[in-house]
Computed example of a mutant assay.
Amino acid sequence: MSTEAVKWAMDRAPMPRTEKGKPDTTARHVLQVLGEHAAPDGSNAHPSVLRIQYRTGYDRTTVQRALRRLEKAELIERDGSVDGRTRWQLAVELVRPKSDWTDLEREENDYRAAAAERKRRSRSKGVTGAESVTVTDSKGVTVTDAESVTGDVTDFTPSRHALNAQPSRTERRPNHQQPPVNQLHKDSSSPPAQTEPGSSDQGGQHLEAFGAFWLIYPKRREPENAKKAWIAAIKRGANPQHVIDAATAYARERANQDPKYTKYPATWLNKGCYDDEPDRPHLHAVGNGHIPQQDDRDMWDQKKAVIR
């Protein structure tokens, strides 16, 4: 094996090109195997095709095609045969142009510059300009419950309530869980004073009372529709405190029940369910050992009167 021929095949020999002008790495690898079997002047290289296959890992057809491309590029030349194997003369006088190295350096610099520009643009997209950041005065923020705080922060006005904000979708409180009494006192304002229809502050008082209703109601869905239904019910003459008390009783009634049968707040308000009579316990026969209370006796007397 000749070190000079191998060095020429690896570094100094011109790069063979494919028909599309790209580096022919397959032919380059085969040329290196020929250099390993050549004399220092590039002569007397006669490895068998099988040896080249073993050295490169290519199949027979690939090796033969690579030899033909090298011969066409005038990097090798037939010089007889040895024991039935073709003997090759390597054109060690041919030298690779220096422009190949400078071209590679330029391509590498362009690649690094493009990668740095992509990284800079990616970082700039993740940064928000200072002009687009809005800071709200902390005095104008009303917080009701840490579990139901949304990402929206609005300006403070006396006629608005924090519960007017859209409820968070990440709320984890069960639909029928009754809020603590101290939480209701904390989050809801006192019942609004009765005002004449059409007064200027009537809408704000309706929404303040709606905040207490919303906390109590067992299924908090479609808040905008519920607000409209609430205002419509108050305009029809419903007392806000009466509606809140009825919602409390309804929440107690629906506790531990299937939530899919619980009415939406807008439906409950529009149908006037706040005027429904509460369910009374069924009477048991006296023979079962039940002692009727006064209310049971009155109802029983009414039933007997109807039967007579």
Rank of each mutant, 00 (worst) to 15 (best):
residue 133 V to L: 05
residue 133 V to N: 06
residue 134 T to E: 13
residue 138 S to Q: 11
residue 139 K to S: 14
residue 141 V to Q: 08
residue 143 V to A: 02
residue 144 T to C: 04
residue 144 T to P: 04
residue 146 A to R: 12
residue 149 V to I: 10
residue 150 T to H: 05
residue 151 G to K: 06
residue 152 D to P: 04
residue 154 T to I: 14
residue 154 T to L: 11
residue 156 F to D: 04
residue 159 S to T: 10
residue 160 R to W: 05
residue 160 R to H: 11
residue 164 N to L: 11
residue 165 A to V: 13
residue 167 P to M: 00
residue 168 S to R: 03
residue 170 T to C: 10
residue 171 E to K: 07
residue 174 P to G: 13
residue 175 N to D: 15
residue 179 P to E: 03
residue 180 P to G: 14
residue 180 P to Q: 09
residue 181 V to R: 08
residue 182 N to G: 14
residue 182 N to M: 12
residue 182 N to S: 15
residue 184 L to F: 10
residue 184 L to P: 09
residue 184 L to I: 14
residue 185 H to C: 10
residue 188 S to Q: 02
residue 188 S to N: 11
residue 189 S to N: 15
residue 190 S to M: 08
residue 190 S to H: 09
residue 190 S to Y: 11
residue 191 P to E: 04
residue 192 P to G: 12
residue 193 A to K: 07
residue 194 Q to I: 15
residue 197 P to Q: 11
residue 199 S to F: 13
residue 199 S to H: 09
residue 199 S to G: 10
residue 200 S to V: 09
residue 200 S to D: 05
residue 201 D to W: 07
residue 201 D to M: 08
residue 201 D to R: 14
residue 202 Q to W: 14
residue 202 Q to E: 13
residue 202 Q to P: 00
residue 205 Q to S: 11
residue 206 H to A: 12
residue 207 L to H: 03
residue 208 E to M: 13
residue 208 E to V: 07
residue 210 F to V: 07
residue 211 G to T: 03
residue 211 G to I: 02
residue 212 A to E: 07
residue 214 W to P: 00
residue 217 Y to M: 01
residue 218 P to D: 02
residue 219 K to F: 05
residue 221 R to Q: 09
residue 221 R to N: 01
residue 224 E to C: 02
residue 224 E to S: 12
residue 226 A to H: 05
residue 228 K to C: 07
residue 228 K to R: 14
residue 229 A to P: 11
residue 229 A to F: 02
residue 230 W to H: 03
residue 231 I to W: 05
residue 233 A to E: 10
residue 233 A to L: 08
residue 234 I to F: 03
residue 235 K to F: 01
residue 237 G to A: 02
residue 237 G to N: 01
residue 237 G to P: 06
residue 238 A to I: 00
residue 240 P to C: 03
residue 241 Q to N: 03
